[in-house]
Design a protein around this nucleic acid. Structure first.
Length: 283
DNA sequence: ATTAATGTTCAGAA
DNA sequence: TTTCTGAACATTAA
């Protein structure tokens, strides 16, 4: 679930409680019934991290990056169900990692909670993060990408535009929920080949990406029916109330009040769209 | 009781 | 080189 708005919300939620703090310990949670692959990894990370200080916390696409004093980085990838919380995780059984700080304050720890357990925690020596995720590996951030970059990226592939939006090498941060919402806002059919978009559509796309994502950040992300995603203080997001198409199959489109929301499969993921609002050229 | 589907990413194959 | 497929995992709905 965590896409750009959810990860941004996590970072903003923990930032002031994390910056400048010295790491007292980092441990796999005892409740982690399946110590998965992160347990041995964590032992290695622990040696590197003890006594170090977090200089900054930031979002890189859908990842959370902790800048460690000295130039190393601790990177958390929430993947499908990962969450960073300061308190009150959704349940106690799926806590995976606790990072404890020295000097007691309002919060003494942050936790990585992950129901499905697909998330990762990775240590990067100075410079290694740039080599791994620097130029090329990740496209420009979805909040920064501009019209000329969209023209460039869309022009060089005939893949369906929905699939292109999900490609992190093209643009970083957009996931399955927001891809559908963005294309609906832009009035673009999800199966339209990227290199067939005219300049008017590209303009609308560029605008829709920013407006949908920035509104979603203001709403602190989308909490779906299963309630998995929460902010750092265990409060629900509110952008699910703004969804126009996602998970609305069969319902009348809120925007045009005519079309019936359809659901198709692209790249093995569900896509939702309004056939009336999103005509465009199809494959 | 199986099977399919769920927010993501990546290795390996086509 | 680019693009597609399946797997990693836990849980719920059909």
């Amino acid at each position: 679930m965590p896409e750009l708005p959810e990860v941004e919300t996590m970072v903003r939620g923990i930032r002031s409680h994390v910056i400048g703090r010295i790491i007292d310990d980092i441990v796999a949670c005892p409740n982690d019934h399946k110590p998965i692959s992160i347990a041995p990894k964590l032992a290695m990370i622990r040696k590197k991290l003890l006594g170090q200080r977090f200089a900054e916390v930031r979002r890189l696409g859908k990842r959370i990056v902790f800048d460690v004093s000295g130039g190393s980085n601790l990177v958390i990838e929430p993947r499908m169900t990962g969450l960073l919380v300061l308190a009150n995780p959704p349940d106690v059984d799926h806590l995976r990692v606790e990072i404890r700080f020295q000097e007691s304050r309002e919060f003494d720890s942050i936790w990585f909670w992950d129901r499905r357990g697909l998330g990762t925690v990775t240590w990067f020596e100075p410079g290694a993060l740039q080599r791994k995720l620097g130029s090329g590996a990740l496209g420009p951030d979805a909040l920064d990408i501009d019209v000329s970059e969209w023209i460039e990226s869309c022009g060089k592939t005939g893949r369906e535009i929905k699939v292109v939006l999900l490609d992190q090498k093209i643009v970083a941060g957009i996931g399955n929920i927001y891809a559908s919402e963005i294309l609906h806002k832009a009035g673009i059919h999800p199966t339209q080949p990227a290199n067939s978009l005219n300049s008017g559509s590209i303009d609308k796309l560029a605008v829709a990406v920013r407006s949908v994502l920035s509104k979603a950040i203001l709403c602190e992300g989308s909490t779906l029916g299963d309630g998995t995603y929460r902010n750092a203080l265990n409060q629900n997001g509110r952008y699910q109330n703004e969804h126009r198409v996602y998970m609305r199959e069969g319902q009348t489109c809120i925007s045009c009040e005519k079309g019936e929301i359809a659901r198709i499969t692209q790249a093995q993921r569900s896509t939702f769209f309004c056939p009336n609002c999103q005509k465009g050229k199809r494959k």
